[in-house]
Each structure stands twice: as structure tokens, then as C-alpha cells.
Amino acid sequence: MKLFEITTKPISTDEVIARLNAPTVGAVATFVGVVRGETDGREVCYLEYEAYPEMAEKTLRQIGDEIHARWRTIQEVAIVHRVGRLQVGETAVVIALSAAHRPEVFDALRYAIDRLKEIVPIWRKEVWMDGAERRSEAGE
């Protein structure tokens, strides 16, 4: 089972958690990124995500390595990001990580999503109900 994956298929949070199969685990924290229904007061029709898949999986793995180096108590990390056309309410990304105790999982989770937004080659095109578009690479 891949711990770091770019997929075109719908993502199940439970299935990503199941990839963390350490029997001694005491805590699992997840972040689920979901397609928002509106941005800046405009209704979103759908999102289109595109990745450089080979490098995206490599940089996701790098984030896992960085987490293990910073937080020794984190046991396992899994990050799955979906690409292609996503409807409002669908899951775009799931980050799951496990540890024997809870204190560090929240910091590590936040680090993971912040790093993902910074270094992983994935792009997002928002298409609004009125037909207009906005691309992540055009700036916020």
C-alpha cells in the first residue's frame, strides 16, 4: 500500500488511515481537505487539479521524511492527493499520521499541509458557476 500517492480516484479517509498499519499506534490524526462551495463570495462549479505526478509523490515522501526527522515520536505518515475534476464537497487531500501519544500529531499535521502547499507540484483551477476561472498559479 502506498503511503504517498497521487490518484485520480475518489479518496476515502478510512482507507488512508488503514494504510497506517502499526499495531502499537495510540493516536491517529487526520487532515481532510474538501472542495469549498464558494470563494470570495462566488459559487464554485468544480475544481480541476493537475499534478506532475512522479515529482509530486516524491515531494510527498520528502514531507514524510522531514516529519520523521523533526518529530521522533511520529510513527507513520500517509498523504494521498486527488487530481482531475472534483465537485464541491469531494475530498482533495487526506493526510494521516500516527504516534503512540497525542501531543505532537497536531503540530506534525499542520506542518504536513503547510509544506504540501509550498513544495508539491500540484495546481488548481477553480471554475465558477458564472463560467469564470481562477488558477492557483496566477496568484491568490
Binding site: 506532475y52 492527493h81 487531500v93 504540501l116 509550498e118 507540484p121 500540484i122 495546481w123 492557483s136 498559479e137
Partner: peptide
């Protein structure tokens, strides 16, 4: 070689 515009995942 890959030309990568600013990323926007998540």
C-alpha cells in the same frame, strides 16, 4: 526538465 508555475495543492 520541468517548468513549474507556483504550486497550489491542498
Amino acid at each position: 526538465v520541468a517548468c513549474l508555475p507556483p504550486v497550489g495543492g491542498g
